[in-house]
């Protein structure tokens, strides 16, 4: 099956099995180094990608659903401005996830930040910005998508809190 899609900003035409999971396409056909998932559907949460700008488990997306989609892996995400917010939060805490889950956890944090900043609505220049109250239980539940236990949950929540602060500050600066 021939599928056209955009992966990490490159428009590609892939010739793959129609039901092949996106995670395998990325790892085997495109030799993407940022993804490492061999749980075979056991929900390890290591294969997170941004699928049309929303975080998704790539092992749950078949090839026939990626037609025309924009897929961003950690490889291109780490060059974005959004990544810098999370990276600064890691530095502020002085800890970061282990190399095997780092990429996935970072993308999950990005997904949480996106949700938190869009749930309150992207305030236009005329509307005053709302302060986001972090629902820690909800954030912990989202972070549990990745089963790696390398980091304490409290620390991860702190990272989300700090990164959210950076993100909001950047948005305020851009608006003003």
């Amino acid at each position: 099956m021939k599928i056209e899609c955009t992966i990490d900003g490159k428009a590609l035409t892939l010739s793959v099995n129609s039901n092949k999971p996106l995670s395998l396409i990325l790892m085997e056909d495109l030799e993407n180094q940022s993804l490492a998932s061999y749980c075979r559907g056991n929900a390890c949460g290591n294969c997170v990608v941004l699928f049309n700008d929303e975080a998704a488990l790539s092992c749950l997306i078949p090839a026939f659903r990626i037609r025309g989609a924009k897929i961003k892996t950690f490889e291109s995400f780490q060059r974005s401005r959004q990544y810098r917010d999370i990276e600064r939060a890691y530095k502020a805490i002085g800890n970061r996830p282990c190399p095997s889950c780092f990429n996935a956890k970072t993308l999950i944090i990005e997904s949480i930040l996106q949700d938190l900043t869009t749930d309150t609505g992207h305030p236009s220049a005329s509307t005053p910005s709302k302060e986001v109250v972090l629902d820690k239980a909800k954030v912990a539940r989202e972070l549990s998508l990745n089963s790696c236990q390398c980091m304490d949950m409290a620390e991860l929540i702190q990272i989300v809190e700090i990164a959210l602060g950076y993100r909001n500050r950047r948005r305020r600066v851009r608006r003003s």
Binding site: N17, N19, L24, R40, G41, N42, A43, C59, P62
Partner: peptide
Amino acid sequence: GTYLMSQPDYYPGEA
């Protein structure tokens, strides 16, 4: 497709 794809024998599989 979340349940179908989370089965260990999903790929390579017969359809």
